[in-house]
Nucleic acid binder design. Structure first.
Lengths: 192, 192
DNA sequence: AGATTTCGTTCACTTAAGATAAGAAAAGCA
DNA sequence: TGCTTTTCTTATCTTAAGTGAACGAAATCT
């Protein structure tokens, strides 16, 4: 199970046995069931999540409506805002599927940083990469119509369309479920 | 002039005289004129920008149309994707106003990191904060209508509406200039 | 299996954004 | 100052998204 994490980290830095053991010793692997809520609006949580297996999502509830803002699948990580800002969470995080996650809090990170400084370097690099990814996604969202956004998603994360209910995809695309349904039939028509 | 930078950094870490001098010795302050282009699509650039004074923006050109994706004003910093990914830039960066910027490349960062490790720690923290900010903006964009996005901007960055041409604001909001003009008149009507 | 809840599609209607064009206002320049 | 370019607004028309409601299909539960 650790292998997913170590394979991921190997893309960025080489870890020796001690360093790997230090991570394992933190005892951070947890299992969850579909529907489990990891974080709720208002929570003061200090935990970040790295997905080993499964799918989690973040969403707001605005006027009683769920607004999904992100999905995280294998080898992706979610650092909730509240972990960084130390303020109550503005959104929810729950499991779209049964999941195995790494759950780590800031205290654990400090421990690791102090023991192995190269982890802080790693975190800077990961953080910069995440930032680039997030900005790229935002740019693409801003410069595309809902239909293009959907087609973009079909190309880039086709698995999501299988794993996640359509109404969650819809709000992720910034539209209603009805509108997404129309877009889908429009695309099918044009293919025929 | 350095003071803007040091005031900014003081929010995060304490710098001693040596450290400040190391930064100054990099000789990184540059002046630009309104309209100057700092980065073009296709460029392989290694430079990041920190705004001391003025305003810069990033934009794509898609089908001959400018699509503005971000504005950066005093004490904000822009790390172009190409700096991090080492690939050719997908977008442009230019000056909305005359500007004084800090321009630093990766080599300078390495130098500083090696000399003063706490700068790397600083960069991780800044990077995480930028990520939170960017995600918050993205979430807000996704969950708002164009009209709400504009009102949000009026509240949060009213200065931009004065400093930046409307057609650039419009594409920043993901809409056309005509549509923004209608939104503005709609808002004025409802106030009256 | 049967009942129930969740999810996806369709329809009719309303509202707002995109496209195209034209003109007014403002800013920049000679 | 007067001229030119840039920026903003207005109008018409088209297209697509939002809303509310209804229905059927699929998944879930026991």
């Amino acid at each position: 199970m650790e292998q997913v994490l170590f394979d991921y980290l190997a893309q960025y830095i080489a870890l020796n046995a001690d360093e790997k053991q230090a991570i394992i010793d933190l005892n951070i692997f947890k299992q969850y069931k579909k529907g489990d809520i990891l974080l709720s609006e208002g929570d003061h949580s200090d935990e970040g999540y790295f997905v080993i297996k499964g799918c989690i999502r973040s969403y707001f509830i605005i006027d009683g409506e769920e607004k999904t803002t992100a999905f995280y699948t294998e080898a992706e990580s979610l650092e909730p805002h509240c972990k960084i800002t130390k303020k109550p969470s503005a959104y929810f995080v729950s499991c779209v599927e049964d999941a195995i996650l790494i759950v780590a809090n800031s205290g654990m990170e400090e421990t690791i940083f102090a023991q192995f400084p190269k982890f802080e370097s790693l975190c800077r690099i990961l953080s910069e990469e995440l930032l680039v990814k997030n900005q790229t996604d935002f740019d693409s969202f801003k410069t595309s119509s809902p239909e293009l956004r959907y087609m973009h998603l079909m190309e880039n994360r086709p698995d999501l369309l299988q794993r996640v209910p359509q109404y969650q995809i819809a709000s992720y695309l910034g539209i209603t479920a009805q509108s997404l349904s129309r877009i889908r039939s429009r695309i099918l028509e044009n293919k025929a």
